[in-house]
């Protein structure tokens, strides 16, 4: 992915000279992946158990909870960014941790963005598992954990889709990471909190549309690569 192109060949491949210094592109790819993958991993750890628990138990307010989660899928990322900024800013409750303009703050905001779709889609996948699976697990003397595991196994394709949806939301959004991350790259051209999306925004704002499109293409290729990996791990969604 980060194999440097031969400078003599690069212009032929992409049609023009890359206007970046060495290390710039790999570093923004790294920041994008680091932030999004971490956020989605944390979201998955929280969302899947919650979704399975909610999906397998009957309780009052379950529909309300489902509605809240579904609404969360529509959170505008800019609003989430502002809310997270308020929390991590020096004036906010987490101010002493000095998280503003760091990758950790970006992970926090993407966690908030990715959790609702992962929870909602996992919930739908769990709800879609045939009741027979649960009954069979019970009948075979399984504990509640065994039942949950059996359901998870059946729902794994749906869960893989949920993770991909969360990842797609995280890596493609620009509003919140711009606000809480600050779009910082060092004077040496190495990104601190600049992601592919905020780099696209930076290029577009200066009218360098070709470069912006190129970065967009890199982002697309990255999402495709992650999809392939997750689909393989998930055992082939929709085979």
């Amino acid at each position: 992915m980060t194999v440097p192109l031969d400078p003599a060949v690069a212009p032929l491949v992409v049609g023009f000279e890359l206007p970046f210094r060495d290390g710039y592109l790999p570093s923004i790819i790294f920041v994008s992946l680091y932030v999004s993958v971490t956020a989605v991993a944390l979201s998955t750890l929280v969302s899947v158990p919650v979704a399975v628990a909610v999906g397998l138990t009957e309780f009052r307010g379950r529909r309300l909870l489902t509605s809240v989660v579904n609404t969360g899928m529509g959170f505008p990322s800019v609003v989430v960014g502002l809310a997270v900024l308020f929390v991590v800013s020096n004036q906010g409750p987490l101010g002493p941790l000095e998280l503003v303009f760091t990758r950790e703050a970006m992970i926090l905001s993407q966690f908030v963005l990715a959790t609702p779709p992962i929870t909602a889609i996992t919930l739908a996948a769990v709800a879609g598992v045939d009741d027979g699976v649960r009954d069979a697990a019970h009948a075979l003397g399984g504990t509640r954990v065994d039942v949950a595991l059996a359901v998870l196994r059946e729902a794994r394709y749906g869960i893989a889709t949920a993770v991909l949806a969360g990842f797609g939301r995280a890596i493609s959004e620009v509003g919140s990471v711009l606000i809480v991350g600050g779009n910082i790259a060092g004077a040496d051209g190495v990104s601190k909190t600049r992601t592919l999306t905020t780099a696209v925004q930076l290029e577009a704002r200066q009218g360098r549309y070709e470069t912006a499109m190129l970065l967009g293409g890199v982002l697309l290729a990255l999402v495709l690569a992650v999809n392939v990996v997750v689909v393989r791990l998930g055992g082939g969604v929709g085979r």
Partner: peptide, 29 residues
């Protein structure tokens, strides 16, 4: 880079509009 080399520090420049930059500073960020 001159300043960073001289003091062995890192400068994080956050590009915003003047109003937003002052607000960031006002919050102590």
């Amino acid at each position: 880079p001159d300043f960073e080399d001289l003091y062995g520090v890192t400068v994080d420049a956050v590009p915003q509009g003047t109003g937003a930059a002052l607000e960031t500073a006002r919050n102590g960020d």
